[in-house]
Amino acid sequence: MEAPRIEASDLYFSWPTGPAVAGVSLAVRAGEMVAVVGPNGAGKSTLLRLLSGYLKPAKGEVRLAGKDVRGYGRRDVARLLSFVPQYSEVNLPYSVSELAMLARYAYLGPFRPPGAADREMVARALELTGVAELADRPVSQLSGGEFQRAALARALAQGTEMIFLDEPTAHLDISHQAQIFTLLKRLNAEEGLTVVAVLHDLNLAAHFPRVAIMARGGIAADGTPADVFREDRLSKIYGCAVRTGTVEGRRFIFPEISS
């Protein structure tokens, strides 16, 4: 069997306020799509940043393509893995195409001017995410949905085999959510893009073939949505009564709200 592209073993990490990730091991193979879910404060975003090398684990190791993620040069990692952060304001008015071109830093470094291949990657990323018409608009003037698509375009322009996303659709309406996840699924199917996404919305996560649910810094369950999203487990982890249903073979999850 092929070796995992991402391999985390027994990760521990604490913030000054307390432990965030405790004893997580996780392996992701090339071409997998993994959703990481769990309650607020369960350690999802921290885990994603440990996997990307942004945070240094107090204990344990993350191996990316067979090598310690923190042992790479920064630009070498950026050629393997791109990262779409939570919606965050960019207060300088870079245009959408300038923003995407910055993703070519991993290849160009500080000095080399962009070539035809770089411009092609950027144009393709803008095309795929549907922001090509916005290429010259300053990102500071975009709507939330447009901005997140521009952020995704930036990550795709990086031309990596893996993409990490932290709540990429947290503030988006359902049509924008659908657009982004449709695109990710397509790139996964057509180009073997490996996707790891931290998600709040369990019903979105149910579209992923694999779901890992975190609770109090550990992974409580890891498997298909049908395996992971069980009423008793979700009720225990979220501390409220959770009901699930299945429509057209897809799991739906909703909390019980007493009246």
């Binding site: 990307s52 920064r74 990692v77 050629r79 893995l81 960019v90 993703a103 500080p110």
Partner: peptide, 23 residues
């Protein structure tokens, strides 16, 4: 001036700059 491109990256925020390949 030589570091103008890394300055473009850091203006996006440290986490973004890191993931785009900046030390």
């Amino acid at each position: 001036v030589v570091l103008a491109r890394p300055l473009d990256l850091i203006a996006l925020g440290e986490e973004s700059a890191f993931h785009l390949g900046l030390s």
